[in-house]
Write a protein that binds this DNA or RNA. Structure first.
Lengths: 109, 109
DNA sequence: CTGGTTATATCCAATATGGATATACCTTGG
DNA sequence: CCAAGGTATATCCATATTGGATATAACCAG
């Protein structure tokens, strides 16, 4: 597989962050929820994937210095970089083509 | 990642076969074409994936005893089993949800 | 103050990947 | 007729990725 080297887990994380900035654990819950429980990222995959995306410049940590809500000090917040947004969009477009092909094949309506 | 244990390559192969029975090499070309060249399965991934799908009962080989066209004797033809069709449909539905989420996130239109 | 959930991090064995290598059939053109 | 390039399948290997276990600790409800 080539693409731009985005693993399935990588895309799930990017999509979760495209839907709003979050911390790691929230990404995990988002992925599980949006897939109806079908996709579940274990802690190993989750944090390793996030770190890889940060190293690749697709995601960056930011300081959620929201003085209003008393945040959990353990949380580490992430957001997409412009590159990450581009990668997520490319992958989403590819996925759209696959869904179209699945419809043409009569697999889904 | 959980799902029903379908790797990305596995889904590409199932989708290719859902679009019509084919031999291995044709699956490879289909995947490349439908993704606009973004996804390419190397021979290692291709044949190993097919064999795994056969072993899992999602795909089965069949005899393309078409006496009309003089077939290449090397070719080995495959088709989806009912289970394979179900798995492909489930995955396509999941993918539809992801595309919807990507739209809601403003990633794509 | 205690148990359950939230949150991050790292390790490991098992699995999956791309790319190279090998073999051989088939078609086309010189 | 035969050489070359594309077609077709198969296997090997080094690397990458995964799930699950383990660890640690902060947070919160009762």
């Amino acid at each position: 597989m080539v693409s731009i080297m985005l693993t399935a887990a990588g895309f799930h994380v990017l999509l979760a962050l495209a839907s709003g900035r979050k911390h790691g654990y929230a990404v995990m819950r988002f992925v599980e929820e949006i897939s109806g429980g079908a996709v579940r990222l274990g802690p190993g995959t989750l944090y390793r994937t996030i770190n890889r995306l940060v190293a690749d410049g697709l995601v960056e940590e930011f300081d959620a210095g929201d003085p209003a809500a008393p945040h959990d000090a353990r949380r580490r917040y992430y957001k997409l970089t412009p590159q990450g947004e581009r990668a997520a969009r490319d992958e989403a477009e590819l996925m759209t083509r696959l869904v179209t092909a699945a419809k043409e094949a009569g697999l889904i309506t």
